[in-house]
Design a protein around this nucleic acid. Structure first.
Length: 207
DNA sequence: TGTGCGATTACG
DNA sequence: GTAATCGCACAC
């Protein structure tokens, strides 16, 4: 994987600004790598965010410095990975929802344990962590330095016009269109794979 | 100390 | 459409 590891300054932004910038960056872990094609922004003043009611045992990592990996256990079965962002102590993060597999597809298929098409390997937040071997032991890992998982810029620019839609699987703040994805990419987790004419700017005025 | 439910997935 | 599966957050 040729490219440069993203440093802490890159992550020191509002999640709604950072989220579309993460599209086309590459998540690297061990022998596997995949290009980010779908993310969701979660702000601290956002009822759908784990950080909305302040720091707890589960979400402590969200309040750490930007660039930490926040990994939590979902539905008693799956791990989900986020990138902590904004100033330290804020409680903002971007959820990684789908990757386009690039390297280590056979290992991904082996981990996932099913005869899957490429597009089924990492097309969901629980799927991508499983495929890349990311679990709770990596909660709090610093993506900005050292070994282990990294976010890499391989020179591919983010999409000029990312898709934008409401976030998936939440029951609060459902109208906020803070899910961003690579329009038309087959590795995106699920419909809508095309934008609904929403813009993140408009979202700031939504309940 | 009890319990409802979730930033999901896979299968019928 | 819905079972699986369990830790967390908050009510009691």
């Amino acid at each position: 994987m040729r490219g440069k590891r993203l440093g802490r300054a890159f992550f020191r932004r509002d999640p709604i600004e950072l989220a579309p910038l993460l599209l086309h960056k590459v998540l690297v872990h061990g022998e596997c790598a995949g290009r980010i094609v779908e993310v969701e922004a979660y702000r601290e003043d956002d009822e759908a965010s784990h950080s909305y009611r302040g720091r707890t045992a589960r979400n402590g990592t969200m309040f750490g410095p930007p660039g930490l990996l926040y990994v939590y256990f979902s539905y008693g079965m799956h791990w989900c990975a986020n990138v902590v962002c904004g100033e330290e102590g804020r409680g903002a993060a971007v959820l990684l929802r789908a990757l386009e597999p690039m390297i280590g597809l056979e290992l991904m298929r082996e981990r996932r344990g099913r005869p899957l098409r490429d597009r089924d390997l990492c097309s969901g937040p629980g799927k991508l962590t499983h495929a890349l071997g990311v679990d709770g032991s990596l909660d709090g890992h610093d993506l900005a330095r050292g070994d282990g998982p990294a976010l890499v810029d391989d020179g591919t620019a983010p999409p000029a016009r990312p898709g934008c839609s409401p976030r998936i699987g939440i029951s609060k703040a459902v109208a906020r269109p803070w899910r961003f994805f690579v329009e038309g990419n087959p590795h995106v987790s699920r419909a809508p794979r095309s934008t609904q004419g929403m813009t993140p700017r408009a979202a700031h005025d939504l309940p």
